[in-house]
Amino acid sequence: MKTIKNGIFNENPIFILMLGLCPTLAVTHNFESSYIMGLCVLIILLFTNITISLIKKLIPKNVQVPTYVLIIATFVTCLEMILSKYVPLLHDVLGIFLPLITVNCIVLGRAISVASKENLKTSFLDGLGIGLGWTFSLMLIGFFREILGNNSLTLMNAISPITKYRAIYQIFPSSNYFPIDFFIKPAGAFFTLGLVLALINYLKNKEEK
């Protein structure tokens, strides 16, 4: 439990470690794509951490990184094929950022720093914690960006062929000033990330005092 909590709060990949910011800024224009991307990274983290933890003694030190990249790329390729077969709309929404999970700093970082040193249980829990931390962070940014930039909250749209249910809500009554397009654009992603980071640091400093 401590490892999971550590991954979500103390070692949050986005707000504390500041890793994997490229997909964070790119896919959070929509709440649904944010949590789906988060879940994809969570699945990849779990599988790679478990696999690497199991075979860590068989891999010589000098070929650690290429072997780990190979393992991560395999799981990402499998996930991409499964998504394109069963949820093609979602596969299109995530686009290039789905195969780019292979080079995500968090996945390789946790594989080298945790999975290659710790036992199976710790590696699994670390993957779960970091994955959940990443998912919650993306959801938080996606939540603010979609509401402010599109005046909506998409809970289920691309995954509706599976759930047989669509859920897109309008949050505020539309006016001349609202929604603000800026938040949907890439600059809005930086701005929102900065605001959320400032808020978290403010709350952290307040707690320390």
Binding site: I59, V63, C78, S84
Partner: peptide, 30 residues
Amino acid sequence: MNKKFKSIAALTITSLICGILIYIVFKLTN
């Protein structure tokens, strides 16, 4: 020499297993 051989063997075996896994998923999804 032994170390080099071990490294190449580890990479080759991992590639092979990964290739087989991708092939299985490809066959299942197509």
